[in-house]
Design a binder for these strands. Structure first.
Lengths: 344, 344
DNA sequence: GTGAAAGCGCTAACAA
DNA sequence: TTGTTAGCGCTTTCAC
């Protein structure tokens, strides 16, 4: 807060009019209630005095903070900036200010952040990092703040959400590999406590089945986290169990990168020996070696839709929750090719 | 803002005590003024009623919003998330909430964001995207809000700033190339209206000179922006003018990537024919093809230092501005090698 | 150690 | 069309 902002009172005195009149002029919804000449003088005085309405004080009175809390796991994870920008763009447009907090996937930090949001009386909440059975749920319900989930969702339902169509994404990856002639495809799955991990895994299995292939549960290795190291380890498990595997669908790009590492460690070439498909299409995935074939998710759009849903929920709190599922697209690059001869 | 938060008044009534007493208990600085027994009952009632102090209302009274505005060009630029996280971590620790706004390098959007910050009565400002002669400067001064610059700085001085030691970074890159035996090194410079572009360019020239080599201004091509395409174009200019160049220092990693592209277009191999050094060490630079040798900047640390400086400025507004320069490090990877035979 | 009262800057209901 | 008044939830000075 700075030295001394001019107040509505200062403007009123300068014009020789009552403060409420100034308020009326400044508020678009009530400006027509004041005579044009006075309005003009008020506007002029406000500009001359460098008057900036105190939005916080206004919020105290109107009981709306014009503020939205955005909870994400980690801003430095390349997945989230586009989502946040999408959210922010529509929120700003609507006169809201987004407040961002990182949880680093720690439940305790998420809880603290939620309490800070509550202390600021946010008008709404966007949660980008929930787990399927999120411990925050009861507190959320108690708070009664309009909330939208984005990117990941919860098992319970009842909260509006905007997510990628993960099953469709897995199918895109599997069908691409099948079309290339791969007969034996493995899956490096993400953590199953996350909706993305579970949905991509289920989608993978369903797509294999839909193609009339044998579904072997052992062709799926679950990674402990969405990080490169975990991907390498899961890749190793998979390849140890099935040396004749010719393709891997990874549940995200980092896991795919881990698979790259494990393949290199074994002296296997990608895509010559084993094809790899990622998930997310993170920035610069086209610069990897080899350039990564991956399922592109329109992250910014997901953020935009989430913010719109939230504005809706704020305006009409009783509207039943709905889930928006956004369609992903396959981006074919250099990490997939036909399987080696004799392994089709 | 949600349905009905319990207020300090509710707590007071529950305990049968005056609201001011509740306030005293809740405020660490005045708690000792109230008897232990009453304090205990107040605390219990507050917890039972689920009372969360309204930080906004408190701010109205104390004239401190406990809020800091952070202005960045683009959150989706991998440079900024680590800086923001660094800022946020120390600000949160100190009880402040960061509000982020993106400018997309548009002066008009920066101005709007600044006004929104002013309307929220932020206690401080962190600006990450200033240009050397920033048009925001006069308005900033008028606002009188404690401000810290980060990552880039302005020519005028007088505002505390935390930046990378760009000259030192350029020297690191040049010396590395010289040590490898390169005799003719070019520079793809960043936009000169940005302090980083100017400082890295100056540092490059100075390092060449310090090594006793001829300084040719024409060995520098200035890119229009810090984007891949601009890097490719500048690289082309450079290589057209000096086909015998064996190494390029790029003013950031994206420009380096552009150089990769231009080299590929010419059928030149990196690092066999031409070595390339980047600047920033962006995430996954080690995954590029070839893995990028680059000047690592401790972005998170820079954010941390900036926030500390801001807290200092908020606490002691009259402290003279100082600039903190953080030391970069060279990370040698696969994009640099000895020059081709006959070109040393 | 506790209560009373004023007021931060604004909006909104009611009067004139 | 304009003025009056009350109060959002909190902190702080002053009395007791």
């Amino acid at each position: 807060m700075t030295k001394k902002h001019a107040s509505i009172h200062d403007v009123a005195r300068a014009v020789g009019v009552h403060p409420s009149t100034v308020s009326r002029v400044l508020n678009a919804r009530t400006r027509h209630l004041v005579s044009p000449s006075v309005a003009a003088r008020v506007t002029a005085a406000a500009r001359r005095l460098g008057y900036t309405p105190d939005q916080v004080a206004a919020g105290l009175r109107t009981r709306r903070s014009s503020t939205v809390g955005v909870l994400i796991p980690d801003l430095a994870n390349p997945l989230f900036p586009p989502i946040v920008r999408g959210i922010e763009s529509v929120l700003t447009e609507a006169g809201y200010t987004a407040i961002i907090a990182n949880t680093d996937n720690a439940a305790a930090r998420a809880r603290e952040a939620l309490e800070r949001f509550a202390a600021r009386r946010v008008d709404g909440l966007v949660l980008a990092g929930v787990v399927r059975r999120d411990p925050l749920l009861p507190r959320l319900r108690a708070l009664g703040v309009p909330t939208v989930l984005v990117n990941r969702t919860v098992d319970a339902g009842g909260i509006p959400a905007v997510v990628n169509d993960d099953a469709a994404g897995s199918a895109l990856a599997v069908d691409h590999l099948l079309a290339l002639g791969h007969a034996f495809i493995g899956h490096v799955a993400g953590p199953q406590r996350l909706s993305t991990g579970a949905a991509r895994r289920a989608g993978f299995l369903a797509a294999i089945k839909a193609a009339g292939r044998a579904v072997r549960e052992s062709a799926v290795a679950v990674a402990r986290s969405y990080e490169t190291g975990a991907g390498a380890q899961a890749g190793r498990t998979l390849l140890d169990a099935h040396p004749r595997l010719t393709a891997i669908v990874a549940a995200n790009d980092l896991l795919a990168l881990g698979c790259y590492d494990e393949l290199a460690r074994r002296g296997l070439a990608c895509p010559r020996d084993v094809s790899v498909v990622g998930f997310n299409d993170m920035p610069f995935a086209d610069r990897f070696s080899p350039p990564l074939t991956t399922v592109h998710i329109p992250h910014r759009l997901i953020g935009v839709e989430a913010a719109r849903l939230l504005l809706e929920a704020i305006a009409h709190p009783e509207t039943p929750a709905r889930e928006i599922r956004v369609a992903p697209e396959l981006v074919v690059r250099g990490s997939t090719a036909r399987p080696p001869r004799g392994r089709r």
